[in-house]
Design a protein around this nucleic acid. Sequence first.
DNA 1: ATGACTAGGTCACCTAGA
Length: 276
Amino acid sequence: MRIATWNVNSIRTRQSHLLGWLNSAAPDAVGLQETKVEDSLFPRDVLEAAGYRCAISGQKSYNGVALLSREPIEDVRIGFSALLPGDSEAENLGEQRRVISGWIDGVRLLNLYVPNGSEVGSEKYQYKLAWLNCLRRYLDVQRQQGEALCMVGDFNIGLEDRDLHNPSRLSGGIMASELEREALQACLGDDLRDAFRLFEPDSGHWSWWDYRSAAWDRDRGWRIDHLYLDEELQQRALRCIIHKEERGREKPSDHAPVSIDLSDELPDADSGDELW
DNA sequence: ATGACTAGGTCACCTAGA
């Protein structure tokens, strides 16, 4: 099973890029962020024609998340409120469409578009911290459900210095400040692991390159698009790929897709004698 | 170099992104 995440920066502008990439990378399930379109205008027809079912939570101009899947998407949950009924902050944060999850082929796929935060100390930064704190409460409930969990998205956080092209200049600033890193780390607990780091310890691997400053040509990027796996799914992880070539196309999104491959079945500890 | 580029909405530049 191949699961991917991609901030497309407008699904309508990126529609042909997306269709081409779905065809070549053939993911089974995808979390999209920044669709930037209200649900009635979401290009559901062309995606269904390409073989993907859609679960969407969008809004005009900003934000917007979606799930695509070849297999049925069951038990779709939109917003934090779906697992935090009566939580007024969860309800308020739900005005921005940034959270969607679905049950796909035995996996709870949770797709997130974490707020950017603008500038450390700003009102938007406080919103980002409050949002991450709400995510922590949401995950507390999610964990109680006992479902296999894969949490993907644009986290807008370089969690460690090796995820930044210039840590000496960028560390401590927006997307790399101590408080937001701690807030995300608190969400991860001791069970959720960054799939990319299961395979690659080195720096120099990015998923986002600023449109400005010729960041792509200079390969000055950040690794802010992540897939997190719970302990059960970590056992099934085979590889994690950043589809960097998508950032090099004409009129690209500023983010590249990232995918993981999961083996079809868990290694079975009780039957290790078949092959040996 | 407190910038740079891109997308959406609305209609000339503004907000927002990260």
